[in-house]
Design a protein around this nucleic acid. Structure first.
Lengths: 226, 226
DNA sequence: ACAAAAGTGTCATGCCATGACACATGTCGT
DNA sequence: ACGACATGTGTCATGGCATGACACTTTTGT
């Protein structure tokens, strides 16, 4: 009757659960990469780990959720990175730095991220709408948390001031724009983190001045040769 | 063997199809409003119109698609509005004006929009994640088209220049931010179109200067009492 | 060792979505 | 108006996702 540890991080049971969870994720990604997301059934994933499909759904609310696990970690890391930015930094700069640093970690495998899986997920986002949709949904949901953090950092009340909401939206938007740019193969775009940085750059210094028409030369300013 | 009209907008068959489609939409919204989106089954919708569920799926790829019909119309209207903005207008201004005018149309029932249904959809977006997710997905997909139009307007190549992508992303982001602000009940927000306008305002004149900390007084600038 | 708690497997169920095939209903040329 | 063709619809059949119910097993705390 719950006497010792309220949140039992210890114990065989907990360890076993964690192992099953990891196994499910690994098996899932394995299969996703082999046959694609859509073509992989929950039953196959469960069979691979030798549990029932029912059990799978006790660990994940949906098949897409397995993939979103990763995104959730990214988000957590981003929040940490944001918190560790100096308070003197302007909001958008802090968001930019935090966001870019997280993607760098994903790409370079630091911080416990797996670059291969990172790439795998990007692929799935492009190829299966279900994953993409859930990802957008997840991002939008998390945006609310970012809003809170930003509002705190700005020292304003998010129930009155729109700006934290917009700022959070912009960071989210930056991610998606970068992804879209990347997957539509815009020239000179390779690393996700670089593109993201550029997108933030366009937002920060180019937004007000997007003209009706412009000489091609001026475009060089915002899309530097790297 | 296809002699007269290549795109037969005429003909009984076509009319019948259109009627069935309308009937399905109407029945669907009726039921959605009565019992909620999730609680309504495709079979119920089809029964109401006296067709088989199979037929329903010949008109709509998914249950969510019925709702997205409306969004598709909004989008089309927005594109038209954007095209009719003077070419001299800066891109973000044009986007802002176009976007706001569409929402106004939705709210006021002009241009063939139904304000009641508009409200109904907003409700569903808040209450059923599936609809919300699909809506995000749809918006993201359409963003690509906006990108194209903007690039053309700017006279730049979207395969080289990031800015059209970002601008399109921002307009999309503005919609969602406005929606989020609205549904999280930020004070002084009532009409969707007004909030959207404010969001664009924040983006245009406040973005660069979102400071680390700020006196509450300065906030008044970007959130006018209207 | 025992009792409570927590996890799992096994049905059963319901809904969404799609393919196949037969049937009915328009459409068009003559 | 009639017949050939195209197109839309109904009726299965199928398969996957997701969830509830209930019995059974494992773990945990005392």
């Amino acid at each position: 009757m719950e006497t010792s540890c309220a949140a039992p991080t210890c114990g065989r049971r907990e360890r076993k659960k964690q192992r099953t969870r990891e196994a499910l994720i690994d098996a899932a990604f394995q299969l996703f990469q082999e046959k694609g997301f859509e073509a992989t059934t929950v039953e196959e994933i469960a069979d691979e780990v030798d549990v029932s499909s029912r059990t799978f759904f006790r660990y994940f609310a949906s098949k897409e959720d397995v993939v979103l696990t990763f995104q959730e970690e990214q988000f957590t890391t981003m929040l940490e990175a944001l918190a560790s930015r100096p308070a003197s930094e302007p909001v958008m700069t802090a968001l930019r730095n935090a966001a870019v640093s997280v993607l760098r970690a994903c790409e370079e495998g630091t911080y416990g991220f797996d670059p291969e899986r990172f790439g795998c997920i990007q692929q799935m986002m492009e190829s299966s709408p279900a994953v993409f949709g859930r990802s957008l949904e997840h991002g939008q949901k998390k945006q609310a948390e970012i809003t809170r953090v930003i509002a705190e950092r700005m020292g304003v009340d998010p129930a009155v001031d729109l700006r934290p909401h917009v700022a959070a939206g912009l960071s989210n938007c930056a991610f998606r724009s970068a992804f879209e740019v990347l997957s539509s193969g815009v020239s000179g775009t390779e690393r996700f983190s670089d593109v993201l940085d550029q997108v933030f750059g366009v937002m920060e210094d180019g937004l007000n001045y997007l003209p009706a028409q412009e000489t091609p030369a001026a475009a060089e300013m915002t899309t530097p040769s790297r």
